[in-house]
Amino acid sequence: MIESKYKTPDLILDIYSEFGQIGIWYCDKITGEEEISEEWASMLGYQACELNPMSDKKFAELIHPEDLERSEPIIHAFYSGQRLTYENEFRLKHKDGYYFWVSSKAKIYSWQENRPKLVIGTHVNIDRQMKMQEKLKTQTHSIVAAFSKVIELKDMYTKSHLENVANISVKIGRYMNLSDLNLECLYIAGHLHDLGKVQIPKEILNKTGKLTADEYEIVKKHSNDAFVILKEFDFGFPLATIVRQHHERIDGSGYPDGLRKSEILIESQIIAVADTIDAMLTDRPYRSKRSIEEVIETLISSKNIEFDASVVNAALSYLNYLR
């Protein structure tokens, strides 16, 4: 048995000691031996003897199909040496038929001929935390929907623009390999980045001609106006600041604070690019929409000047996909 051959490193136990029950799994990648602890099995309603010896096939039957597909590139990156540690969250099927969330971490503890040999990992039941997060997510989306209704009553274009920016921001974030939390943050911030425009008079908001200097100063207040509204809510991430910064530019030419480069949150930088893309691809009273080629040219010319190169490159990948 693998467990009898190797002493479980204290580090593994330290990582999860605050969480309570720890399920441990062992794998010898050279011999193919796999084994789970009694605690690991009991989380799923089994005894270890019912599941041992464990195998990749058995595990694939226990993990939720959606999570299995999502986990495959993470597992590949770990065993190929692209990642030093394995960290993932997924759902496992209990003996009674329901799925529950676990947090899994693993590390390669020995190598043989440049190949992983001993791998030891842990599972912790995080189902309660994940359900609480889902509840908070639902509440957050309800708040977003309420604000969206306010915006819709003010201006239908702004409402559709917010939806587009939210979706484009998430797509850019995916091309940048951002976490699910970052993507959720982008989705919400994209929906609310122009919330402050409810303060702008309609005659200025829908003006077909060029804005006067005074009118432009009124428009520029919208990012801070949104900040003032959103700062009263705790979304679990700096939503108000992200929205405040979405008109900042890395060369310091933006507003309201003239921030530069790393002073600007990455989510704000992504929304800034998504905002530009949708504005150019949409018909407006004062001009016709631009072609994708024109949008690409604009982004390329603004790379490392107004917009961060990594964000622009991700946006270009998205736009090339649309062509």
Rank of each mutant, 00 (worst) to 15 (best):
M1K: 11
Y6G: 08
T8A: 12
L11T: 12
I12N: 11
D14A: 13
I15K: 03
Y16G: 11
S17W: 04
F19Y: 07
W25P: 00
W25L: 03
I30W: 03
E34I: 00
S42D: 09
S42Q: 11
M43F: 14
G45S: 08
E50N: 10
N52L: 02
P53R: 05
M54W: 03
S55K: 06
F59R: 07
P65W: 09
P65Q: 13
P65N: 14
E72H: 12
I74K: 14
I74C: 12
F78V: 01
S80C: 07
G81Q: 10
R83P: 00
L84T: 05
L84Y: 05
L84G: 01
T85F: 08
R91G: 10
R91Q: 14
L92A: 04
K93L: 15
K93G: 02
K95F: 00
W101Y: 15
V102Q: 06
S104W: 00
K105D: 04
A106Y: 00
K107F: 13
K107Q: 15
Y109D: 10
S110P: 08
Q112P: 01
E113T: 06
N114V: 01
R115Y: 10
L118D: 06
I120Y: 10
I120W: 09
G121W: 00
V124R: 07
N125P: 08
I126G: 02
D127G: 08
R128I: 08
Q129Y: 08
K131C: 02
Q133K: 11
E134I: 02
K135R: 11
L136N: 07
T138N: 12
T138F: 10
S142V: 01
V144K: 04
A146P: 03
A146R: 09
F147S: 03
E152D: 13
D155S: 15
M156C: 10
E163T: 10
V165L: 13
I168A: 06
S169P: 06
S169G: 12
S169Y: 00
I172S: 06
Y175P: 00
N177K: 11
N177E: 11
L178A: 04
D180I: 04
D180M: 07
L181F: 14
E184N: 15
E184P: 07
C185D: 01
L186S: 05
I188V: 15
G190S: 12
H191F: 07
L192M: 13
H193C: 09
L195Q: 13
L195K: 13
G196I: 03
I200F: 13
K202A: 14
L205S: 15
Y216H: 06
E217A: 14
E217D: 12
K221F: 00
N224A: 03
A226T: 04
K231Y: 01
E232C: 10
G236L: 04
F237T: 01
T241A: 05
I242V: 10
R244C: 00
H246I: 00
H247Q: 09
H247K: 11
D251G: 11
G254L: 02
G258Q: 07
E267G: 02
E267Y: 00
Q269C: 02
I270V: 12
D275G: 09
D283K: 09
R284Y: 12
P285M: 06
P285K: 06
R287M: 07
S291N: 10
I300H: 05
I300Y: 01
I300P: 14
S301D: 15
S302K: 15
S310W: 07
S310I: 07
A314Y: 00
L316M: 09
L319P: 04
